[in-house]
Amino acid sequence: MARKVFMIGRDEIPASVSLGAGEKLDWTLVCLPGTSAVVDLAISLDGPGAELDLAGLYLCPGSENVRMNVSVCHNSGGCISHQLFKGIVGGTARAEFDGLIYVARDAQKTKAYQQSHSILLSAGAWAESKPQLEIYADDVECSHGATTGFLGENELFYMRSRGIPEKDARRLQIISFLSPVLERLPEELRDDIISEC
């Protein structure tokens, strides 16, 4: 299946998707500034060899409120799922990522990975990642990572000492942080997002 990009708040995102044997899904969810939304997405890998590559990016610099509830269910063995979510949260915005990985008893040889990271740009911003793993099979490879933090002052000074102005240094940090998700987007959208940073 081809890559698909969903603009949160504009495109309709299916609430649930089932992948059969050998089916592949490659989706990227993008939430642009000014959008508040709740996204509920349940993807189940129901046939052997199904593969999910899911990414998300949310930019909430103002007073947005974004919640993503994503559940990935490995019901069949030998499937792979990758999830990568990145968010920039400023102003008084709120962003929450709830991510469930479920691996059924029979879903042996499952590989499931989830990463969710956000950067806070202001003291009034709030972000939370809640990863959840429910694993009932024993021969699986699963990992998850979640971080929330501010742009580092040491990094900033290091860059400035090399002649990179403060504003550009912060922007470089943000773009670098988002780059693994930005790479998945069509060039035009990517350039629009970069110019918003």
Binding site: G152, N154, E155, F157, Y158, M159, R160, S161, R162, G163, I164, P165, E166, L172, Q173, S176, F177, S179, P180
Partner: peptide
């Protein structure tokens, strides 16, 4: 400012160089 000092030709080799994840040396 620190960046103006750099433009004017001052360079510090840091005692503890800082890691910048996601930024390549080239970039």
């Amino acid at each position: 400012t620190p960046e103006e000092r750099s433009w004017a030709g001052i360079f510090l080799s840091f005692q503890y160089p800082v890691e910048i994840p996601g930024v390549s040396i080239t970039n």
